[in-house]
Nucleic acid binder design. Structure first.
Lengths: 326, 326
DNA sequence: CTAGGTGCAAATAATTTGCAGAGGC
DNA sequence: GCCTCTGCAAATTATTTGCACCTAG
C-alpha cells in the first residue's frame, strides 16, 4: 500500500511543478481515511505546518481532483467533501443523516441499470451518483453493533472471492448437468473435463477464502460491500435451468460459451477498474480462467461443426456457429 | 390539474397564516416546470411584484419543502434547486454537464436494488438520490433530436400502460400454458377462465394505449420514463418457464398465486405513490384486477386442498397451503 | 392585540480570486 | 530569470439572521 501511495504522488502530476507544500498536502490527504471537507484538511495540515494557507489547500484539492487522485463528493451538506479516488472508483454511498457518517458500497447491478437508463435516453454518462440517505444501524439501535467497517481492501477481496465462488459453483452445476445429459461421448468428455476443472478451481478459491478469513476472522460477519447478483443467478444458473428443458449438445455448448464469455467479461471489466489490491488480483485471475474455458468451448464447438459438416454438409449451421464463436 | 394546484395551495399549509405574499410565491413556483434555483424564482417573482424580498422567497421555499409541496435537489452546482414534489415523487435525474439541464426518470428496478443494499447494511433509508451526469443527446449531436420532453403526466400514463400490457401478456401466456398442461378438468376450467379474462383485459388496455397515442401521436417515440423490468421478465414469465418443466396442478396454482400477488403488490405500491394522474389510475385499476385474480386462485387452491384432503387426508399439504394462501 | 409574516441590511459560510512575493528549474 | 506556487486579504456566491415593521385573525 505504501508503494501505491508513493507511485501515485510521483506519477500523477500531469502538469505543474514539484512543490514541497503541495506534496505535503497530498500526503496528509492520502494518509486519511474517509471523506474530508476542505476545512477538515486545512485543520489537519495546520497541525503539522502553520504556514500553509487555506487557499493553497483549496487549490491543491482542485488539482488533485483534476489529476484523478481525489474526487469531490457532495452529500448535500452545503459543502463538498473529498475522498481518494484511486482505490475503489465509482462506488456509491449510504449517508446517515444522524451521525453524518457515510459508508461505501459497490453495486454492479445498479451500475448496469444506470447504464441501461442512460442508453435508453441516448445520454452519454460520464459519472453517476447514488446516495442512500437514512439512519445507520448504530444511530437507530443505540450502540455500535458491528466493529470498525474494516479495511475496504479486505472486504473487496472477500466479496470478490464470494462472487468467484458462487460463479464457480453454478458453473460446476452447469457442466456436471451437461455431462450427465450429453449422449455424445466426446461432448461428455469435454463437459466432464470442464466440470472437473471447475471443481478443482472451486477448491482453490474456497481454500483462499478460508485463508482470508483466518487473516481476519471478523471479516465473515461484515456486511456485503460489493453487490452483484449475476454471479449466482445471471450467468450459469440460467444456463443450467435451460439444460433441464432438454437441449442438444450443440445448444449446450453455445450456452456454455455464452456463460463463459459473460463471466469473463464481467470479471475482466470489474477487475481492471481497481487499483492494485487482492480483490483486483482475484478478479483478473478468475477472468483468465474463464477465458481459457471459453477458448476450450469455442474450439470444441468448431470441431463439432466440422464433424457435422462432414456428415450433413449444412452451410446454415456453419455460419451461425462462426457468428456465435466470434 | 388546476384543481390539484388549488387543493395543494389550500390544504398543505400545516402551520402558519394565509398571506398574500406567500401565496403569490407559491403560485409562481407551481406554475413553473423543471428545476428552479432560489434566484430563478426571485427573478420570476420580481417580474410581477417588485416589493418581494429575496429572504421571503428563501423562507417560502423552505416552508414549501417542509409542507411537502416542493423538494430541494442538489445537482452539485454549489446551490440548490427546487421542484414541485407533488407529481412524481422519488424520481431520479439525468444531468447534462454541458447545457446544465436535467431530465427525470423513474426506475422501480433501481429502487428495488437500493432497498436491497440498505437492508443488507441494516440501514433505514428515508430517501435516495440517483444522478447520472454526462452529456445529453442534443449537446452531443448538435441539434435537438427529440421534441420537448412532453408532459410527464402523459409519459407516465404511457409507461404505466406499457407495463400493464406487458404483465397482462405474460399472464395470458402463463394461464394459457397452464390450461394446456393441466389434466384435471376443473383446474383447466380455472386457468382457461383466467386466460380469457386476461385476454379481454389485454384488449382493453391495448385500446386505451392506442387511444392515448391518438391524443398525442409523438408520445410513442419519446424515450422510456418509467423503467420496470419485472413486468415482462420478473413476474409471470418466470412462472411460465417453470410450467414447461412439468409440474402438477397444485404447483401451477401456487405459482399463479405468487405471480398475481407480486403483480398486485407492485401495482398497488407504485400507484399509491403518485398524485392524481392517469398513470396512477391505470396502476390502481390494474392492481384491483390482479387482486381479483389472486382471490380466485386462492379460493381454487383451497378447494383443491379440500378435495385432496377428502381422498388422502394428508395434514402436511394443508398447512403448507394455508401458509401459501395467507 | 398579537403571533406570525415581511423587507432590508448585515451576517455567515464555503470557496475563489487578485496580487505581491517566494522558490524551484 | 521565468514561470508557477503560495499566502494573505478581499471578493463572490448562496443562503440565513436580526430586527423593526406590518398584517391577518
Amino acid at each position: 500500500m505504501a508503494t501505491t501511495l508513493q507511485d501515485l504522488t510521483r506519477l500523477k502530476p500531469s502538469g505543474g511543478k514539484r512543490s514541497s507544500k503541495r506534496e505535503q498536502i497530498v500526503n496528509v490527504f492520502l494518509r486519511q481515511e474517509g471523506h474530508l471537507s476542505a476545512d477538515d484538511l486545512v485543520d489537519l495540515i495546520r497541525r503539522e505546518d502553520q504556514r500553509i494557507g487555506r487557499a493553497t489547500v483549496y487549490r491543491t484539492l482542485q488539482w488533485m481532483v483534476d489529476a484523478g487522485i481525489a474526487s469531490k463528493v457532495d452529500f448535500g451538506e452545503g459543502r463538498f467533501r473529498f475522498e481518494h479516488s484511486y482505490r475503489q472508483p465509482r462506488h456509491f454511498h449510504l449517508i446517515c443523516k444522524t451521525c453524518h457518517r457515510s459508508f461505501e458500497f459497490l453495486s454492479s447491478d445498479i451500475e448496469a441499470l444506470v447504464e441501461e437508463v442512460a442508453t435508453a435516453r441516448s445520454f452519454t454518462a460520464s459519472q453517476s451518483v447514488v446516495q442512500i440517505y437514512g439512519t445507520c444501524e448504530e444511530c437507530r439501535t443505540g450502540r455500535n453493533s458491528t466493529s470498525e467497517p474494516g479495511h475496504t481492501d479486505m472486504l473487496f477481496a472477500r466479496d470478490a472471492l464470494r462472487i468467484a465462488i458462487a460463479t464457480e459453483r453454478s458453473g460446476l452445476e452447469f457442466y456436471s448437468r451437461a455431462a450427465r445429459l450429453t449422449r455424445d461421448a466426446r461432448g461428455r468428455k469435454v463437459f466432464e473435463d470442464l466440470a472437473h476443472e471447475e471443481k478443482e478451481h472451486l477448491g482453490k478459491l474456497e481454500a483462499r477464502y478460508t485463508e482470508l478469513l483466518q487473516r481476519d476472522p471478523k471479516l465473515e460477519s461484515l456486511p456485503t460491500f460489493l453487490f452483484f447478483k449475476g454471479a449466482a443467478h445471471g450467468l450459469f444458473a440460467e444456463g443450467a435451468e435451460r439444460l433441464l428443458r432438454g437441449i442438444n449438445d450443440q445448444q449446450a455448448l453455445l450456452i456454455g460459451i455464452r456463460c463463459e464469455r459473460g463471466s469473463h467479461r464481467f470479471f475482466k471489466k470489474y477487475g481492471e477498474r481497481f487499483e492494485d489490491s487482492e480483490g483486483k488480483q482475484i478478479f483478473l485471475e478468475f477472468a483468465d480462467e474463464e477465458r481459457e474455458h471459453l477458448d476450450l468451448l469455442v474450439r470444441e464447438y468448431r470441431a463439432l461443426l466440422k464433424r457435422q459438416g462432414r456428415t450433413r454438409r449444412t452451410a446454415r449451421h456453419g455460419s451461425a456457429g462462426a457468428r456465435a464463436a466470434r
